[in-house]
């Protein structure tokens, strides 16, 4: 079977890597596999069967003519990924997923700690500082965590730098593709399970807040801390498992990778630019409303609202850009 896959890979290596081409290649492989197995069943030797299957393949120029495609021989050759490169990519992608997931988790945790410490001091459980220091002390873990998180983002980003091939076109050998498709299918179940867990956490979290506010006014502040802890776990699940899924999508050319790279890059840039303005702005609003107006009990809502608005913007922008 390996021989047949290699033969097909070679035959198609000159052709552009379009969806249509991949579909035809996949169908041909399935036909050739069927034919091969039937020949083996009919008592042919492996060599004979492969010989017959390959002799009945035909001439690839016939396809080129009908599909009106230009062979890529005079253009830049499209690289074929090796097994090591593929595994390295998946592994590194996973690791960077942990870094980003934990990083985002740390930022939310920092905010939770800020609220917790401030409330503990207000309730008189911690009595060390006086006056304005009360507001500042909670900010120390927040800034610390944010610093660590930013470091983790930078490391995660630089880890993925060497996989620049994902930004342009590449080939994957058929037997690798088959393996990845199987892995992806198995992972699908894990992904669904973790997504459900994450969504359940996000739904349960506000309920805890509501329940805690029934008991005591101040209890609701601790409820917020608990809420943020649950959101932290959910966010980690979304980011980490989402990242793994994205890795398979990239390698298998699924979903957004069907969209021309240029459109996508432009989108990423604009969305990235907006993100770099809107999120620091949210942090500033959060800090001012807390430090100046002492609204720590409610101002955390800035983050989910910003998140929602940002998601709406990037979604709408993508659709608008693609239609245009």
């Amino acid at each position: 079977m390996e021989t047949i896959m290699n033969y097909l890979d070679n035959m198609f290596s000159r052709l552009p890597n379009t969806k249509e081409m991949q579909g035809i290649k996949q169908e041909m492989l399935a036909n050739m596999e069927d034919k091969y197995h039937e020949l083996i069943e009919a008592g042919k030797s492996e060599h004979e069967a492969i010989g017959i299957v390959i002799s009945e393949f035909g001439n690839i120029d016939e396809l080129i003519e009908v599909l009106g495609v230009v062979p890529e021989s005079n253009q830049e050759p499209v690289p074929t990924l090796t097994t090591t490169e593929i595994n390295d990519y998946l592994e590194t992608n996973k690791k960077s997923g942990i870094l980003v997931g934990v990083g985002v988790g740390l930022i939310i945790l920092g905010a939770a700690l800020l609220i917790l410490i401030t409330q503990l001091m207000e309730d008189g459980y911690i009595q060390v500082f006086e006056g304005r220091m009360v507001d500042v002390i909670g900010l120390i873990p927040l800034f610390l965590f944010v610093t660590i998180a930013v470091g983790m983002f930078i490391i995660a980003d630089s880890m993925m730098k060497k996989f620049s091939f994902t930004q342009s076109d590449f080939h994957i050998q058929l037997h690798e593709k088959e393996r990845l498709e199987q892995e992806n299918q198995q992972f699908q179940q894990t992904h669904v399970r973790t997504t459900i867990t994450g969504v359940a956490l996000c739904i349960l979290a506000p309920m805890i807040l509501i329940i805690s506010s029934v008991f005591h006014d101040n209890a609701s502040v601790y409820g917020v801390v608990l809420l943020l802890l649950m959101v932290t776990i959910a966010v980690f699940l979304f980011i980490y498992y989402g990242r793994i899924k994205e890795g398979y999508n990239t390698l298998l050319h699924l979903e957004e990778h069907a969209i021309p790279k240029k459109v996508q890059k432009k989108e990423d840039k604009v969305i990235g630019a907006v993100a770099s303005i809107i999120w620091p702005l949210a942090v500033i609003v959060f800090l001012i409303s807390g430090l100046v107006y002492h609204q720590w009990h409610i101002n955390w809502i800035v983050f989910p609202i910003t998140g929602l608005l940002f998601a709406m913007f990037s979604g709408a922008y993508s659709i608008w850009k693609r239609e245009g």
Partner: peptide, 24 residues
């Protein structure tokens, strides 16, 4: 492609590339 082979009594075997250029 199997039916073509059968109906032609093994005298015509259509090639993969011929088949798919015809489909497309």
């Amino acid at each position: 492609s199997k039916k073509i082979k059968q109906l032609s009594n093994d005298r015509y075997v259509i090639k993969e590339t011929t088949l798919y250029s015809a489909f497309s």
